[in-house]
Amino acid sequence: MTELVKSSSKKSPAQPILRSDRGLRIQLVLPAIIGIWLVVGFPLLYAFYVSLHDYVLSQGGIKGINLGNYTQIFRDQLLVGATRNTIILTISVVVLEFLIGFGLALLLNNKRLKGRDFYLLILLIPMLMPPITVGTIWRLLLHPELGIINYFLGLIGLPQPAWLGDPRLAMVTIIIVDIWHETSFILLILLAGLTSLPDELYEAAMIDGANSSQQFRFITVPLMMPTILVAVLIRMIAALKTYDLVYILTRGGPGIATETISYYIYRVAFVFLDMGKSAAMSFLLLVVIILLTLILMRIMRTAENI
């Protein structure tokens, strides 16, 4: 059998045999396409239909067409606040998680380091933990009176803040918890990128007399650029959708100090029951995410061409 594999791999390209299965290829994709249409395509179209109408659940069914759902979006002060919070949160967590994650990945990417796999095993733990449990753990630790963190702060004579109850501190606290949760994601991806860099380049650079900071600047950073951008892009998209941590830690409070776009849309939909308005706003969020993704992907393409 292995000989057959070898001989066929060179001579005949696979196409003739494959082309004979026209009917089969459609039959194979059809179930998945119908499935995705039912659970993604159709709901999205329905949401768009709803977003064009007056539809408040507490006032009965769908009423007349109302484009105000879209035209009045930008006059909504609460949405402006939520947008500001989301931008602050996204930029903070992406930048800080990148810096910490890259730093740790560089430290772990050391062949002389013993116990590397052991460190990695621990550092990867938070990545796939349910956000609700991450929030729960930190809410317990950060409890103003019953939490262990404020107890230790008190022991060494530091102030014991109301981490989640103080409007100036609540967003910082959410950012810290998010860093604890998600840094391992960036760490893992950058470490995979670092370990796949060819050793020969570094050996050649050493022979040419490049010191380690020059090696970092002229080899590591340029070669890592595509990996870095993928990691940052994925984290950014996820951070723009932040909902779970806000729900479990602060419910958007105190006041609206930590309300993100997703959380505000959730409130409009499932507390105020305004389906039309919330659907319209959720499309705006989608458009923003698509635009930012396209911009970052363009940057990625230029970076890869350099």
């Binding site: 999205l44 909902y243 939909a269 919330s278 959720s282 969020l285």
Partner: peptide, 10 residues
């Protein structure tokens, strides 16, 4: 790219 909140409403 779809935010869960966009899908959960419909």
């Amino acid at each position: 790219m779809l935010p869960p909140i966009t899908l959960v409403i419909p």
